[in-house]
């Protein structure tokens, strides 16, 4: 299942890590995984109005005895900065699967500042960050970051590179 069907591999990982709450601000790159979670009886999909809600949600879930994961795109990382204090101060396992914008083949200039700053911002808040830039790397990196979060009680991020996802070109051929 490794390689092209990495969304299915990610879903299998969420099952294996006993994830029960999946907090989401959608990204096209996460669309297939979101559909799998929606169809699942063992996971609760929680659509958010802004990404920092997901950190609070998963804090409450952990206090109540459930594991969660936060899905978002890189532009949402900026919305999370202060709320990451909750995970750091309270030792909450907070794995984040983040689809990248603003890098490989980006067309929209407004995506670039936050996309470029994403790993720096996460690391500045104490989050462990690893990247996957090829389809076959997504599942192993995600597995490692899920495990690191749950086993060592911290925020972790698996960045899924834009090279894996393909760039959105708004119908205009890249130059």
């Amino acid at each position: 299942m490794a390689g092209k069907d990495w969304p299915a591999a990610l879903f299998a990982l969420l099952q294996a890590h006993r994830v029960r709450q999946v907090a989401v601000v959608p990204d096209a790159g996460h669309a297939a995984l979101i559909r799998l979670v929606e169809a699942s009886n063992e996971m609760r999909l929680v659509p958010l109005t802004t990404e920092e809600e997901g950190i609070a949600l998963l804090g409450g879930a952990w206090l109540g005895g459930q594991r969660g994961v936060l899905l978002m795109q890189s532009s949402g990382v900026g919305n999370c900065i202060n709320m990451l204090s909750l995970a750091a101060s309270c030792r909450i396992p907070l794995p984040m699967l983040i689809t990248m914008r603003g890098e490989f083949g980006e067309f929209n200039p407004w995506q670039v500042p936050m996309g470029q700053a994403t790993p720096t911002v996460l690391e500045a808040m104490g989050c462990a960050v690893r990247r996957a830039d090829a389809p076959e790397d997504v599942a192993p990196v995600a597995d490692a970051m899920l495990g690191l979060a749950y086993n060592t009680f911290r925020a972790t991020a698996c960045l899924i590179g834009q090279r894996v996802l393909g760039a959105k070109t708004f119908g205009i051929a890249p130059q």
């Binding site: 029960r20 929680v46 409450g60």
Partner: peptide, 25 residues
């Protein structure tokens, strides 16, 4: 009781995550 010293704006959603995790409470 879980009193917050930060995470401003997050209290209600912390409650949401807890309420989903523990429907018996």
């Amino acid at each position: 009781t879980f009193p917050l010293w930060g995470a401003m704006g997050g209290a209600a959603v912390i409650g949401l995550g807890m309420a989903i995790a523990r429907p018996d409470r």
